[in-house]
């Protein structure tokens, strides 16, 4: 494997190792698409099996869902700005936008946990019906990904503070950026096919 550095490229693409790591992460994201597809598949099959328990309209707080959506959407945008700053070699700007992204992500997570508590208070738990089991597994898997992403990004920020912008730290930042955008893509489908669909039908 060559360790030649190609200075004509952005930092994160400058070494062969970096390019391979980024390609590898895209392949991982392909597998993540399939993981979430299985959960969407289960939900799509079971979403009307209420077993006498609460239905979508009984539990969904659509205003809160819209706020969650805007928080995550905005955090995906600020993550994009962070990478933009990285390509301008602005370490301070990069870290600033990463922190904003994490605050928005934490806000999303806070609202989602509140939402789950609200559901449980209404008697809508994982054990209530097949609809709710599949709903909690789908939302919970996404929420767990967001939680993991926040911890991961904090560690990347610590490395950036200690080592500055190098091809290695730039690659790590770029990859957490891809991961974060991916979580927003999954949320778009949860928003559409869980919440909006639930409110319509």
């Amino acid at each position: 494997m060559s360790s030649k550095i190609d200075y004509s490229l952005p930092l994160e693409y400058q070494t062969e190792q970096n390019r391979l790591n980024i390609l590898g992460f895209w392949i991982f994201l392909g597998a993540e698409i399939v993981l979430f597809a299985t959960l969407f598949g289960v939900y799509g099959v079971l979403y009307q099996r209420y077993a006498g328990g609460p239905t979508h309209q009984d539990i969904i707080m659509i205003k809160d869902v819209l706020i969650q959506t805007v928080l995550l959407l905005t955090s995906s945008f600020t993550m994009g700005i962070a990478i933009f700053e990285m390509r301008r070699q602005q370490l301070k700007g990069l870290i600033f936008w990463l922190v904003i992204t994490l605050l928005l992500g934490a806000g999303f997570l806070f609202m989602e946990i509140n939402e789950f508590i609200h559901y449980v208070h209404l008697g809508a738990t994982m054990q209530t019906s097949a609809f709710l089991s599949s709903l909690f597994v789908l939302l919970g898997t996404h929420g767990a990904h967001v939680t993991f992403g926040i911890i991961w990004a904090i560690m990347v920020i610590i490395q950036l503070l200690r080592r500055g912008l190098t091809p290695t730290t730039a690659r790590k930042t770029f990859i957490i950026g891809l991961y974060w955008h991916f979580l927003d893509v999954v949320w778009i489908f949860i928003f559409t096919f869980v919440y909006l669909k639930g409110m319509v039908g």
């Binding site: 895209w26 994201l29 597809a37 969407f40 289960v42």
Partner: peptide, 18 residues
């Protein structure tokens, strides 16, 4: 190609299951 294949698998899994 990788993402298009992932999306194809996703559609087969979701639409196929339902």
């Amino acid at each position: 190609i990788n993402i298009v294949y992932g999306v194809f698998m996703a559609v087969v899994i979701v639409v196929g299951s339902i």
